[in-house]
Design a protein around this nucleic acid. Sequence first.
DNA 1: GTTGTATTGAACCGTACGGTTAAGTACCAG
DNA 2: CTGGTACTTAACCGTACGGTTCAATACAAC
Lengths: 126, 126
Amino acid sequence: MKALTVPPHRQGADHLSVTFAALADPTRRAMLAQLALRDMSVGELAEPFDISLPAVSKHLKVLEHAGLVRRSRKAQYRPCRIDAEAMKPAVEWLGQFALLWEARFDRLEDYLAELTAKEKKRGRRK
Amino acid sequence: MKALTVPPHRQGADHLSVTFAALADPTRRAMLAQLALRDMSVGELAEPFDISLPAVSKHLKVLEHAGLVRRSRKAQYRPCRIDAEAMKPAVEWLGQFALLWEARFDRLEDYLAELTAKEKKRGRRK
DNA sequence: GTTGTATTGAACCGTACGGTTAAGTACCAG
DNA sequence: CTGGTACTTAACCGTACGGTTCAATACAAC
């Protein structure tokens, strides 16, 4: 008999895993993209999505737990602010492999230029 | 009766979500770190971990599905090779927020243009 | 062909995840 | 105090996820 009520594997949940997991959802990424433009209340943030408010609240809690979003109080509102610094560990971890893709392809600069052009166009939409 | 056998939300599973989800597990990240050093067979790859071989096989399938690992055949072995280029979209997505942690500028576009110019130079001189 | 090695597939288990609805909390306004 | 607005908590549902064990496949070597 096993007294195995303990969550077996994902108990520790290191910060990097929490961060990547938080980013692994399109709704949450869209929320972060919105918050990159300006601070927003939960209701504002929820507006573009076809999900209930509690669902939005849950997503925010995930982002908050990952340190990607911080919240305060203003009257009834709980304005959300992005904390992009929390992405640093993820970026740094990915950066470990930069040599692997730069070595094979010397066209990183071209890729970045191209992508930046695309981002410029997409900036204000949606 | 509900004909709702369809997976409701996470059906589409865009590539970025698949990639981030693949990275959101310490075992898989450790596997990628190993593969960054050299190609390895499944058995070799499994050795440092205290999990069964089928579990390793599943992890590899996740990484493969995300395009992070490619596999071939050599006798009974299925050597694994990292494909770090598959990380690029994730890195670039995160790069959108770079200005938020590196500076207090207000214009994402300006920052990106600047960064791209810098990248172009750095890429050459490296 | 039989045996041995490397890896995957199938079935199962418990928890996590994203979603819902309904009820509860917190704050402002009349 | 009453009502409205903004959000969260609680309970539930179905699927996904990480793990297991046991059986099957693929190939090498004898």
